[in-house]
Simulated assay, not measured.
Amino acid sequence: MDLKEYIKAMLDWFSVIINELKGYGEVIPKEKLVGNLIDSIPGSWDSKKTTSIEVKNLKMLKFDKLIGCLLTHEMMSNERKA
């Protein structure tokens, strides 16, 4: 993810990659998707990354739940800046 890129754009790109891999028959475990998504988030989001890892067991964290948390965090950050 680029520093000026919105989380939605990064998630859309991530989904394209996942869907292409599925098209080739690659099955990616949910835990790996969650881990890769967290790793893709830039350093400016370190507090959110750390919270996601510490508060939620990564094996129990659902991919959709993580996406919702990231979108909410971005929305709240943008509201504070406005």
Rank of each mutant, 00 (worst) to 15 (best):
K22C: 01
L66S: 06
N19I: 06
N78P: 00
I53Y: 13
V34D: 00
G35W: 01
H73Q: 05
N78Y: 08
K59S: 13
K30Y: 08
E74S: 12
Y6C: 05
S77Q: 06
D46R: 14
E79M: 09
H73Y: 14
A82I: 02
T51A: 13
K65C: 06
I67H: 00
S40H: 00
Y6G: 08
K32G: 00
K32D: 14
E74H: 02
K30V: 07
G35L: 02
T50S: 15
E31K: 10
H73T: 11
S15F: 04
K56M: 07
F63N: 01
L3Y: 09
V34T: 04
L37F: 07
D64I: 02
E20V: 07
I28T: 11
L33W: 02
P42V: 08
M76L: 15
K4S: 15
L11Y: 04
P42G: 03
K32M: 12
K81Y: 05
W13Q: 10
D46E: 15
L66D: 04
T50P: 03
D39K: 13
D46H: 10
K32S: 10
L70F: 02
S77F: 06
L21E: 09
G25Y: 07
I67C: 11
L11T: 01
M75L: 15
S44H: 13
W45T: 01
G35A: 10
M10W: 01
D46K: 06
S44A: 03
T51N: 14
S77W: 04
V16Y: 04
K48T: 15
L70C: 03
P29G: 05
M60T: 12
I17F: 03
L61P: 02
K49W: 07
V34W: 02
S15R: 05
R80S: 03
C69F: 08
K59W: 06
M76C: 10
L58Y: 03
K56D: 12
I53G: 08
G23H: 05
L71M: 14
N36S: 11
D64V: 03
E26D: 12
V16W: 03
S47W: 12
L66H: 08
G23F: 07
I28R: 06
V34M: 05
